[in-house]
Design a protein around this nucleic acid. Structure first.
Lengths: 341, 341
DNA sequence: ATAGTATTTGACAGCGCTGTCATATCCTAT
DNA sequence: ATAGGATATGACAGCGCTGTCAAATACTAT
């Protein structure tokens, strides 16, 4: 039933090794031969056995996606991009939720040993490390000890001169701020995210740059601390909107907090975007079910996954896939021109 | 560096085959031998090569998670449960997003062929089929043709006498309704979901059963059609709350629509749950970021993934893992006692 | 004690592929 | 035409494990 490389070789009138060469896109195969073999392979519905290939070449054609506990949509998107890249090369993506971090983000010895044991028997050619795992020393150390190549996605910390994939949070944040400014807003507030998250200082930095460039003042009372959760958005908005001179626009550094802002504004009888413009960040599914829909920044998450997988698969070749991927400013209904009082 | 079965055998003073037996938990190995081998294996940090094992036994120790485009949190949870089950048995889960359905849910010949080709070179021992894939004839047929064992998760259609895993939507819906009734509500409205989704009739059925059992009238105008999207929840709520005699409780058959209801109620100046109780279904992340938080039904999604994977791995043994998993009624702030007018 | 059965172990081949290295074929420059 | 190098192909072993089947050993009932 299932055909082997032997069948193909026989039918094409060449040796198994030649078939193998064609299948692996090795050089030094006559064009004619290559075509012939390709044709026969297709005709026979031949597809190589991962296991046999892996055994012979001591590669597994498997790439692991290591993740801890990010938002489901984040890993779903990374995963989508990564599987796509894998498909192009006959690789497969194995999902590995790790459950490393407990509440305080620390990993104890037992857990570490357990993970090591698990990873040890995970015969992958490489791993994609998503946040916050990419900044977890224990996990990184295990990977290094096991000599599993990995690509960190959007890490905070540096990883030597290891290639990483990321987006430019500073730039994106700057663009959002500039967009708000272009609408005529001058009194713009910013809600920071959780201080331990890598993106937090970057997003704030982008905001500051844009404000400085536009020569707008950043009032200290317009900067609120949040933690990326809905609730902190509400709290921040209540503070902000309670000011004697409230801002006309609030840039919350993620969508959940922006949703909190909208919710608080509505409850205070303010209309968005007429009385208040609200900007978010991430373009989560939530952004579209809010009313009004949220102006936000789309992270190139799927692309990050794609690039990371690609990087892993082309370890040897110098093929340099883009490392810093492009985001998009998504303008929706939650932002509008400043309304003359 | 990496030890092989040969090393273990030598060190334990037995044949490779015996080591193999121990590792695979085969019967007919003397207890003493088994212990000895186990000890040596641990000492040597031995872990079998998936590839070699697969080649020799023509199994891959890989299970595919086939999904199309469900909510990210759905697949994330299924995935979590499934990987957990896989780990217990040394299997791995490969993620396979399929992109089968276009807008109208039909799958054309080209796509079908492409999927078949892809699945063909996916050397898995089994596949978990999530909705809506589990009810997609083309996909099911491909799987059957390829003789890939699969377990449908919460399918609408019957799959012969193939084991399936599911939850009891009728029962869950009935419980939610009964809970609403127990709060004193009598005028309870129901918002149906998308008619093509398997759960839609079931959830409605549960509602009806509960109402009938409590001898409460189901007014036709209290039944709204929705499509599981936020927007349809808003629309339905506007109709319902515009009635001369509006309901005091609305059971939306998923969380997104329930969110719409809450949003609409707020805009109409109604306070939830004081003036209106709202129940949802699914316990999506959204349920917790709403204000008030949503009373809803937690689907045993992770458990479904776990059970499905388990089923696939124990094909031979008659081991009968539970097929219909238990849900939970999650009571939060969006429901409260009927308020005497 | 002895045949007969059940349990436990091992030798060996081979799963389907690729790495190595030898061989054959082609081209280029003289 | 021919040496010499570049290019193309093939023979063969063996990757690490398990299936098969035969052998050894342990039990049981007489």
């Amino acid at each position: 039933m299932k055909s082997t490389i032997h069948d193909v070789a026989k039918k094409a009138g060449v040796s198994m090794k030649t078939v193998s060469r064609v299948l692996n896109h090795e050089p030094n195969v006559a064009t004619k031969t290559r075509e012939k073999v390709t044709a026969v392979a297709k005709e026979l519905h031949y597809s190589p056995s991962l296991a046999a290939r892996g055994l012979a070449s001591s590669k597994s054609y498997l790439i692991a996606l290591l993740y801890d506990n990010p938002s489901p949509s984040y890993i779903a998107n990374i995963q989508k991009g990564a599987t796509q890249a894998c498909r192009e090369r006959g690789y497969h993506l194995v999902a590995e939720p790790l459950d490393v971090e407990d509440s305080n983000g620390v990993i104890d010895g037992d857990l570490s040993a357990e993970i090591e044991r698990h990873l040890e028997r995970l015969p992958v050619d490489g791993a994609i490390l998503t946040p916050p795992l990419c900044d977890n020393g224990s996990v990184v150390r295990i990977l290094q000890r096991l000599k599993i190549p990995y690509v960190p996605v959007a890490p905070i910390s540096s990883h030597g001169n290891l290639p990483i994939v990321q987006m430019d949070d500073v730039k994106a944040s700057k663009e959002m701020t500039q967009y708000l400014i272009s609408l005529g807003h001058k009194k713009i507030a910013f809600i920071k995210g959780h201080p331990q998250h890598s993106a937090t200082p970057r997003r704030f930095e982008g905001f500051r740059e844009a404000m400085r460039k536009a020569e707008l003042e950043i009032k200290p009372e317009y900067i609120e601390m949040g933690d990326y959760h809905f609730r902190s958005g509400i709290a921040a908005a209540e503070n902000l909107l309670g000011l004697k001179e409230p801002p006309t626009a609030i840039f919350a550094s993620n969508d959940d907090m922006a949703a909190g802002v909208i919710s608080a504004a509505n409850r205070l009888g303010l209309s968005v975007p007429k009385d208040l413009s609200v900007g978010g960040f991430d373009d989560t599914p939530l952004a579209r079910i809010l009313w009004p829909q949220l102006t936000t920044v789309r992270q190139p998450i799927e692309e990050l996954g794609f690039a990371a997988a690609k990087l892993l698969m082309s370890k040897d070749s110098t093929e340099d896939s883009a490392r810093t991927l492009e985001h998009d400013l998504i303008v929706r209904g939650s932002t509008g021109p400043r309304h003359a009082k």
